[in-house]
Structure formats: structure tokens, C-alpha cells
Design a protein around this nucleic acid. Sequence first.
DNA 1: TCCTATTTTGGTCAAGTGTCCTAAATTTGG
DNA 2: CCAAATTTAGGACACTTGACCAAAATAGGA
Lengths: 229, 229
Amino acid sequence: MYSMPRLKLRSNSGSYSKGQTRATEILEAALDILLDHGYQSLSMRRIAAACGITLGNVTYYYPTKDQLVRDLLESVVQSYMDTFDAIRNDPTMAPEDQFVTVIRLLLEDIQTKKTTHLFPQLWTLSNHDSFISERVDELYVNARQIFNDLIPILNPALTDHEREVVALFVSASIEGMTMFAGYEKPWAPDMPLIEGIAAKSLLECVKTITADDIYRFAPDRKGPVLRNS
Amino acid sequence: MYSMPRLKLRSNSGSYSKGQTRATEILEAALDILLDHGYQSLSMRRIAAACGITLGNVTYYYPTKDQLVRDLLESVVQSYMDTFDAIRNDPTMAPEDQFVTVIRLLLEDIQTKKTTHLFPQLWTLSNHDSFISERVDELYVNARQIFNDLIPILNPALTDHEREVVALFVSASIEGMTMFAGYEKPWAPDMPLIEGIAAKSLLECVKTITADDIYRFAPDRKGPVLRNS
DNA sequence: TCCTATTTTGGTCAAGTGTCCTAAATTTGG
DNA sequence: CCAAATTTAGGACACTTGACCAAAATAGGA
């Protein structure tokens, strides 16, 4: 099983060893507050208190709150990306089984407090902060990569663009479960059933979907401009 | 086409006509700020400024910010519920066409600024506010009702519980598109293609899914406790 | 018109926020 | 062990926030 580290930070702050650990300690505390009490409650003083240090000490490592949040976000994103890369570079099963396994892995991760509480925050912040928006986009591009690798094997007839939209649909479908079957959500007990439905439905989708299905509601054209068949 | 009114408020505040309009004016302004600048920026003073009135005047109608936010949420939820009810009580098409039409309607609504910016906020607030959590849950129960009505027609073999989980999967899948193909999101231009994929995939899912598929990953039992066949 | 209930103003209050600064304490390499 | 670099403490600053209150202005029915 793949486990997601909480944070993966390439911290440049601190030349003494104490400074290194302190810098990560601050980000860990900030993440805890973010998950447990929301972005509203994330203040420099609260972070300092959680670390048992002084406000001035926090600002020594992260002069502005904006910088702290950005470093935190980058660390979080990096930890997810590392996991995705590990999965993608693991050549084991048949494509269909790989596809189903990844879906189940993502649905399992959704059930963690970290993912259930963090990602809606990121989606919200993305709407009004371009820096966060760009980082989150990068993360999802990386997350979809594995689907973009597998779909051409399962359904060679699709064009590149069609495949990317299908990969987006699969990924977004899974993300949509977060608010309903995530950590302590009403449908969390039914996650095993949801996994079964998602595995069957999404695998069937990528295997049998055709350009006719995809462009059924496209207003201006009945098919793609270019086909690579 | 069904249009979603911005707010549907059963305001009890104000006995004079001026008070009635003022109370709605305040909620409208609050919603605008919430959509345009996020919950962070939603302050009593900013609301007052947007209405061109005094801070004290806002607190006269909504003594606490908490009360204002709750009234706003109830009004927003009510506006969506009214729309869902209208759709459900509209007996027009064949079940399959109804199913596809509802999916497309929801995906269209996702593309509005209101829905794209409001719902991630609600999901976030739900994680740390039980009042908001309960209201949002109510809203989604109402939203899934139409799927729970249609699925038994399209697939009579499912038990009540299986049908409800399938309805959840369909609804959650659609919601998941919000962050990727919503208002001004990267995949918004591909929404027509996503509609085609969703319509084909989700209709196929509800028509062909079996208990064997659903319980494929359920650890303790191979099938439901009770079948209503 | 007048009188009462409602609406609006303008201000104060304490609490909390991010940022900045100086001096003390601590760590580390030579 | 010492000196330089780093880390920490503590405080101050200007600012925003939600809540509160008394008095003035307005609205609407009699």
C-alpha cells in the first residue's frame, strides 16, 4: 500500500539543525490547525502557541503569513506528487487491474482526515488566489497522468484530446466523493460499495466510450477536428 | 430551462416595507462579497459599505454575524431546493431522457459563478460548522431525490440501499466537475464533451450495474443482507 | 397632523490580527 | 573555549474585527 507523507518540504530556512527542525515544526503545526480548525483559525500566534514558541520566532522563519502558507502548500503538494510518481513507476499488474487499483487507492485516500479537510480548503482558496490555483492545477495534472497513461491502452481509438477529457472525468468523479464519503462524512460507511460502483462504472466508461458519445452535446462540431486513427 | 433564483428568503425581519427590502439587500450584498472575494473578506463593515449603509444598521437586522450567515445559507439552500422540486414535478420525457437531462442541467449550473464559488465554500465550512453541515446535507438529499426516483425505473433489480448509493455516486460524480470545469476553470471549454461522457457513462452505470459489481470490494459480505427481489 | 414604532446613525469597546524591531540567549565551527 | 552566526524572546505598532449602545431620523397608521 502507498502511504502519503504529511509534508515533503525542501526547506531552505535554517542553517543550524535547530532551525531546520523548527521550520518543519511550524509547517506541521500550521497543517494541523488548518485540518482541525480551518483556514479561519490559522493565525501566526496560534501556530506559535501550537509549537510552544514565540510569535516573533515564527516570523523569523516565515516573515509573512503569505510566505508561510505558500511554503505549506508547496510541501503538501509535493508529498502528493511523490506518491503519484511512485504509483506510476510501479509496473506490476495488467492495465485494467492497474486502473481499478488506482481508483481504489484514491478513494481510500479520500477517507483520510487530511485529504477530506484539506482539499475543499484548496478548492476554495483557488477561487481567489492565483498562486494556490496554479499549484493545485499542477497537482491534478500530475494526478491525472496515470489515467492518461492507462486509457490509451484500454481504448486506443480516442484522440489525445478526447483521452485527456475522459481522464479528467474519471479524476473529477473520484474527487467528487470527498464531500460525501470522506472522513466522518455521512456515506463513509458505504465507501466499499462506492469503490465497487466507481471501479465498474469508470472502467466500463474508458473502455467503451466513443467519439460519438463524447461529441453528442458539442454544439458546433460533430467530431474532433483531427483524428489520429 | 430552469433558472435558479439567487436567494429565496422567508425573512421575518422588518415590519415596515423599508425594513423588508433592507434585510434582503443585506443578504444579497453578503452573497456578492462571498462569491467575489471569499468568506475571508465577508465582514459586517464590508457588507454595510456594499449596501451604502452604516455598520450599526446591519447589526440592527442581523445582531451577530453568525445569524447573518445562517440566514444567508438558508436562503441560498431554499433557492436550490425550489428548483429541484420544480424539475421533479415536471413529467415530460422518458426516464432515460429525464436522467440525461438532469445530468446536463446540473453540469450547466456548475458553470455559473454562483455555484462554482459558493459550493466549495459550503464544503469547507461544513467541515467545522455542524449547522452548515446539516443544511448542506439536506440540500443534497433533495438534489439526489430525482435520481432515486429514476433509478428504480432504469434498474429495478437494485435494493433500496444499493439504489441510494448509486444515486450518491452519480450526484457526487457531477459535483466533482465543479473544481475543474466550473466558472472560469481550466476545463470549462470542454464542458460539452464532459456532458457527453457523463451522460453516457452514468446512464450506462445505473442501467447495467449489479449487486455483484457493487459488493465486489465489500469486505465482510458478498451481498446485501436483504434483497427485495 | 401627530404619535408611536421602526429604522438609521455614529461612536465606543475589547479582542485579535500581521508586521516589525531590538536585545538576549543559544548554537556551531574554528 | 571563543567569537560569530543563528535562534529566540518580548514588546510595540497600526489596523481590522464583531458587538454594543444611546440618540437622532424616518415611516406609517390613527
